[in-house]
C-alpha cells in the first residue's frame, strides 16, 4: 500500500462532509458495471470507507465494456468486482472493499446475508428479475435502497429511492408502467421471444449518458446520508422518483437536462410491501399447504 494521508486526501471536501463521519455506513452496490462502478467511486470520494461490491460470478471486463466503464485496457479480462475494488483502493487506500460474486435473484441466502450487513443498497443491475429480488429483500430487511436505470438510447434515466416503510420499487414500477408519460415507449403485445436467452440486452447509451444518471443516483444517495446526519446542504428530498433527461426527447424530456422529482405513493394492495404480515397469515398458509395435493 502506498503512503497516504487521510487528512490531506479529504482536505478539499472536509468542510462539507467531515472525514470519518460516514464510517458507520456500509453501502452494498449490486452490479459493478458502468453505473455501479461510478456510484461506488462517488461514494468513496465522498467519504464512505467501507463498501460491499457484488456482481454475477465470473462477470469480467470485456473490450466492449471499456468505452463506457471507469476501468480501461489495464483491467481487460479481470473480474469487474476485483478491478473496481482496486480502483476504489487507488482513490482511498484506507477504504475497506468487500467483493462477492453471486446472482442476487437466485442465491438468496448469501444476498440476504450481505444485505443485513449493509446500511444502504444500490441496485445497479440491468434486469427486472434482479431488481425485484433486491426489492423483496430490502423491504423485508428494512434497508434503504436506490434503483437506477438508463433509458434506451441514453436520452435520460431515472432514480428511485426506497425508504423503509415507504413505497417499494414494485409500487413505483407499477405506477410508471401505467403512466401516460411513458406511452411512446410502450408495446401492448404480450408475446414473445426466447426467455431461455441468458444474456440481457444492454441499453444503447453513451458513456456520458450513463455517467450522468449514475451521478444523479450517487447524489440522491449522498443527500439521503446528509439528511440522516443533519449536514448543512442535505435538504430533504421532495419525492422518491427522479426523472432526468440527458437530451431532449418528447414527451418525456422537453429539453436537455430536464429534471423532475415525483412522489409516488405506496400501493395499498402491493403484494410486496403492503397488507398482510407474516405472523397473521401463518396458520392460513399451513392450511393451504395441508390441502395441497402431493404428487
Amino acid at each position: 500500500m502506498r503512503q497516504h494521508n487521510q487528512e490531506e486526501l479529504f482536505k478539499r471536501t472536509c468542510d462539507i462532509i467531515r472525514p470519518g463521519l460516514l464510517q458507520r455506513e456500509t453501502p452494498l452496490i449490486v452490479g459493478a458495471g458502468s453505473g455501479g462502478a461510478r456510484v461506488a467511486e462517488e461514494l468513496v470520494r465522498s467519504g464512505i470507507s467501507h463498501i460491499i461490491l457484488a456482481d454475477l460470478p465470473d462477470e469480467r471486463l470485456l473490450e466492449h465494456n471499456i468505452i463506457r466503464h471507469p476501468l480501461g485496457y489495464r483491467d481487460l479480462g479481470r473480474l469487474k468486482t476485483e478491478a473496481v475494488r482496486d480502483r476504489l483502493l487507488d482513490i482511498n487506500p484506507a477504504c475497506q472493499v468487500e467483493i462477492h460474486g453471486l446472482d442476487f435473484a437466485e442465491d438468496r441466502e448469501l444476498a440476504e446475508h450481505l444485505l443485513r450487513k449493509a446500511t444502504q443498497c444500490h441496485s445497479c443491475v440491468d434486469n427486472d428479475k434482479a431488481r425485484y429480488a433486491i426489492n423483496e429483500m430490502i423491504v423485508e430487511n428494512h434497508v434503504p435502497a436506490f434503483f437506477a436505470g438508463v433509458f434506451d438510447g441514453g436520452v435520460g434515466g431515472e432514480v428511485i429511492r426506497v425508504m423503509p416503510g415507504g413505497p417499494c420499487y414494485a409500487c413505483v414500477a407499477s405506477m410508471l408502467n401505467r403512466s401516460p408519460r411513458f406511452e411512446q415507449d410502450r408495446d401492448e403485445s404480450f408475446d414473445y421471444s426466447d426467455p431461455d436467452q441468458d444474456q440481457y440486452r444492454s441499453t444503447a447509451a453513451l458513456n456520458i449518458d450513463i455517467s450522468q444518471i449514475a451521478l444523479v443516483h450517487a447524489r440522491v444517495a449522498l443527500n439521503t446520508l446528509m439528511e440522516k446526519y443533519e449536514l448543512e446542504g442535505g435538504s430533504p428530498m421532495e419525492g422518491n422518483y427522479v426523472l432526468f433527461g440527458n437530451r431532449q426527447s418528447a414527451p418525456l424530456f422537453p429539453s436537455m437536462l430536464h429534471c423532475e422529482t415525483w412522489q409516488v405513493q405506496k400501493a395499498d394492495d402491493c403484494m410486496v410491501c403492503s397488507g398482510l404480515n407474516e405472523a397473521d397469515c401463518a396458520s392460513q398458509a399451513d392450511e393451504i399447504m395441508a390441502s395441497a395435493t402431493v404428487r
Binding site: D126, D128, S179, D187, S193, T203
Partner: peptide, 8 residues
C-alpha cells in the same frame, strides 16, 4: 419476454 426494458 424477460429482456424487455421498456415500460410496458
Amino acid at each position: 419476454y424477460p429482456n424487455e426494458t421498456r415500460r410496458n
